[in-house]
């Protein structure tokens, strides 16, 4: 549904919006595995951020793991720099129910107390189940409740795929 060039220009627009924020030069960029990782890397590169990039795998922090199960290969979170007192840009691909972001913030607070967290997402879709909003968003999209999209990055090409199940399957 979205091609590589579309996604690149969406990320460029996110960079423009991020640059307008105070203290952006000194923020820590942290991506959420796996969809947020590539976007975070690109933002990190385009913003010429001086800090090491961080990655979170929030699988062990999900509140719904008994419903969706545990991914057998959870990546370890990697936060190379202390987040204590830092301004953080938290990056994910799609903001939907808000549960991933809730879990990510819980995990972040296990590492320290950040000064602020700014949420940057590529796509914002409706269906929020928690009071969580994006501060920076590439694009708002409308999807039916049963539809799922997933960002992949293969051969240096971004691709946003529709991996929806039919309504009858859900």
């Amino acid at each position: 549904m979205l091609k590589h060039s579309d996604i690149i220009s969406l990320i460029d627009s996110m960079v423009l919006a991020l640059r307008k924020r105070d203290g952006i030069e000194d923020s820590l960029i942290i991506g959420i595995h796996s969809g947020g990782a590539w976007i975070a890397e690109r933002l990190h590169h385009l913003l010429e951020n001086p800090h090491s990039i961080g990655m979170l795998d929030i699988s062990f922090y999900r509140d719904d793991f008994t419903q969706i199960g545990l991914n057998p290969q959870v990546k370890s979170s990697d936060l190379p720099e202390s987040i204590e007192g830092q301004n953080i840009i938290l990056v994910d691909d799609v903001l939907h129910t808000g549960r991933t972001i809730r879990a990510a913030m819980n995990e972040l607070f296990d590492y320290g107390r950040p000064n602020s967290i700014c949420l940057a997402v590529l796509l914002d879709r409706e269906g929020r189940q928690l009071p969580i909003q994006a501060d920076i968003c590439g694009m708002n999209i409308h999807l039916a409740p049963h539809q799922q999209v997933k960002l992949s990055y293969v051969d240096n090409e971004f691709e946003l795929k529709n991996i929806s199940t039919k309504p009858s399957d859900t």
């Binding site: 699988s59 793991f65 008994t66 969706i68 199960g69 545990l70 057998p72 959870v74 799922q148």
Partner: peptide, 15 residues
């Protein structure tokens, strides 16, 4: 422990 306590739904953590 985490597999016995519910962590093994067929979706395997994919969402």
């Amino acid at each position: 422990m985490s597999l016995l306590m519910g962590g093994q739904n067929s979706m395997g953590g994919k969402k």
